[in-house]
Structures are given as C-alpha cells and as structure tokens.
Computed example of a mutant assay.
Amino acid sequence: MNKPCRVLLIDDHPLMRRGLAELLAANGDYQVIGMASEGQTGLQLARELQPDMILLDWHMPGLGGLATLGALKTELADTTVLVLTASDARDDLLAALHAGADGYLLKDREPEVLLDTLQACRTGRAPLDPMLLGLLASGLRDAEPLPAATAVGLTDRELQTLVLIAEG
C-alpha cells in the first residue's frame, strides 16, 4: 500500500479548512498534517512539516496567496502547490502560474474534481480548472511573446499551436 500524501492546508476560512481535511481523510490517499489561516503561519508550518502537497487559498488577509506561493516555491521547490480559490480572474490565474503554481482549481467544483486534480498533481501534471482554459488562452494571446519561447527554439507556428492547445 502506498503511503498517504502529506498535505498542508492554507486557507483563511475555517469551514473550508475543516471540510477539506474531512474530505481528504475520508479518501485515504491523503493525510492532512497541518492547517493555517494565513500565509505567514502556512510558510512556517511548511518549513517545519515539509509536506508533499499544499492547498493554498489565493485571497487571504496578511500574506496573500501570491507572496506565499513565491516564498514556498523559493524555499520548498519540490513541494507541490495547488491554488484552490474562488477567484476566476485572469490576472490571478496568470500570476499563480508565473509564480510556479502546480495547479489552479476553483472552490466551487465538486469534491470528486478536487480529488482528481490532486491525483493529477501527484503524478506530475499541472492541472487547471477547465473553466479557466479560456482565460489562460486569452492571457497567452494578449501577452508579449516570451523570450524563453524563442530561447528554446520554438517557431511561430509551434507557439501558435501551444495557444490553441491552451484553448482546448
């Protein structure tokens, strides 16, 4: 039997933290090893507990999701961080991806979708909420071409193909 994935929850809503903890415990593939109501405490717990995965809310008082994600990816680069948020704003999605989020899921999804997303993260995929693919595609279309894309030798047609893939 595989050992459970050790999860840290960082969310400012107690009901959300508790509900997630119960859902994950009932699944059996996950073990919630800590919970924090804001980013600074979450960072400290992450340093101490070294979780396999972190579920991170985006809009929190104090140290918000973006600053927390940046610090987590700097200090615990191998830890998977899934942004679990109510925000379907394009700027939030793009900022999270640029900061290194391993996935982005909206809170209004069914529990089974969350569990599927967590499993995708565990296998190294970077899942995005299907509802947000259009936002991602528009963000890619509106953005200036990235120097890194040409540095790895992508042609204009290959970049266009990537945008179409993002659109679904």
Rank of each mutant, 00 (worst) to 15 (best):
5 C>S: 12
14 P>R: 10
54 I>F: 00
138 S>V: 13
78 D>A: 13
106 L>F: 08
94 L>T: 11
101 A>R: 00
134 G>C: 11
48 E>M: 09
26 A>H: 08
51 P>W: 00
161 T>D: 15
123 T>S: 11
102 D>I: 00
6 R>Y: 12
162 L>C: 11
30 Y>I: 07
122 R>G: 08
116 D>H: 13
97 L>T: 03
108 D>A: 06
123 T>H: 14
158 E>C: 11
2 N>K: 07
113 V>M: 06
58 W>L: 02
80 T>E: 10
52 D>E: 08
112 E>V: 10
43 L>W: 05
134 G>S: 14
96 A>K: 00
12 D>I: 02
136 L>R: 07
134 G>K: 12
77 A>G: 07
158 E>P: 13
107 K>T: 03
153 G>T: 08
56 L>C: 01
107 K>I: 06
139 G>S: 04
100 G>A: 02
53 M>A: 04
132 L>C: 11
157 R>V: 15
33 I>T: 04
20 L>H: 02
58 W>N: 00
95 A>T: 07
26 A>C: 06
15 L>H: 09
32 V>F: 09
89 A>K: 15
162 L>P: 09
55 L>F: 01
140 L>D: 05
80 T>Y: 04
155 T>L: 01
6 R>P: 13
145 P>C: 02
24 L>Q: 08
109 R>M: 09
76 L>N: 10
101 A>H: 05
85 T>A: 06
166 A>H: 06
90 R>S: 15
77 A>F: 14
145 P>I: 11
98 H>I: 02
36 A>P: 10
156 D>K: 14
64 G>V: 01
149 A>M: 14
1 M>P: 15
144 E>T: 13
73 K>E: 03
49 L>N: 03
148 A>K: 07
73 K>Y: 11
21 A>Q: 01
83 V>R: 00
143 A>H: 00
24 L>E: 04
154 L>D: 08
30 Y>C: 04
118 L>Q: 06
78 D>C: 11
12 D>Y: 06
51 P>C: 05
160 Q>G: 14
90 R>H: 13
83 V>D: 02
26 A>R: 11
25 A>E: 04
122 R>L: 12
11 D>C: 09
46 A>Y: 05
5 C>T: 15
106 L>R: 00
100 G>T: 05
126 A>W: 15
139 G>C: 06
159 L>F: 13
139 G>W: 04
84 L>F: 15
99 A>Q: 02
